[in-house]
Amino acid sequence: MEVIDVIISGMINGSVYALMAVGLTLVYGVSKVFNFAYGSFYSLGGYLAFSILSFKIFGGYVTVLVLAVPALLLFGYVVERAIVAPLRRWSSWEVKVMMLTLGLALLMDNLFQITYGARVKSLPVIVEGSLTVGPVIVSWQDIAIFVLSVSGMFAFRWVLNNTWVGLAVQAVAQNPNGAQIVGIPRDKIFAATFAISTVMVGLGGILLSQKYFVSPNQGWDILVKAWVITAFGGMGSIRGSLYAAFIMGMLEAFVGWMFGLTWVQFALFGVLLATLAIRPQGLMGKWG
C-alpha cells in the first residue's frame, strides 16, 4: 500500500515541477534567454496573491486570478522589452542576460524582503480536507494542484497551437530570421514569450504558495529544480519538460522513500548527468 502513497507523492511533485519548468523551457527555446530571475518571478506570483488576498476582497482566488494574470503579463512584457531586449545587439549577450537577470533576482528578492519582511507569509488554502479511498488518503489541496497544473499545461498547449500568438511563437522558435521575413514581429514575439512564461511561473507561485507558503529567498530552490527538469527534458522542448517533470517527481519520491531525503538531490543530479552524458540535448531537446 505504501507504494501507492509514494506514487501519489511522485505525481504531485511531477505536476508541480511541470508547471515550474514549462515557462523556463519556452523562453529558452524561443529566444535563447536564460532567466536567472525565474525563481523571483515565482515569488512575485506568491506575493501578488498574498497582497490581493490581504484586502479580503470578494471572490478570493478567482479575483486573484483575474487581477494577477494581466499584472504578470504586463510585468513580463515590460521586463523583456526594457532590460532584456536591449542586450541582444551585443556579442556574447547570452552571458550578459544571465548576469542581468541575476541582478534582477537579487533586486526582486530583497524588495520582497523589505516590503513583506523576512518571515514566511501564508495564503489561505484553496480547498480543505482530504479524499479517502480505502487505505489511500489524498488531500483535496494536492488534487487541486494536480488538476490545475495539468489543465494549465493543456491551456498553454492550446494557446500555442490555436492562437496567432502561439503559432508565431512556434515559428520564431524554429527560425527567428525566417519568421521575421514573413512578417512576424520577432522582437514582440520574444517579449510575448517572456510574458507568457512569467504568467506560467507566477501562477505556479500562487498555486504552490498556498501549500508551501511564500518567503523572499525561496526562489533559488525553484530555479534550480526548474533548471534541472528543463535540461533533463531538453531545453526548449515543452513535451520533454512535461515528461521530465514527472520522471523527476517520481524519482524524488522513490529515492526519498527508499534511501532517505538527503539522497534526493544526489539522485536528481546523478540522473541528469547520466542523461546528458548519453544525450547531450536532454530527453527531447534539439540542438540550436
Partner: peptide, 19 residues
C-alpha cells in the same frame, strides 16, 4: 538590508549601460 538591493540595481544598470 538595502545592500543587496543596491547591488542588484547596480548590476542592472551596469549591464545595460556598460556591457
Amino acid at each position: 538590508s538595502y545592500r543587496p538591493l543596491i547591488l542588484g540595481a547596480m548590476v542592472l544598470i551596469l549591464v545595460l549601460a556598460l556591457p
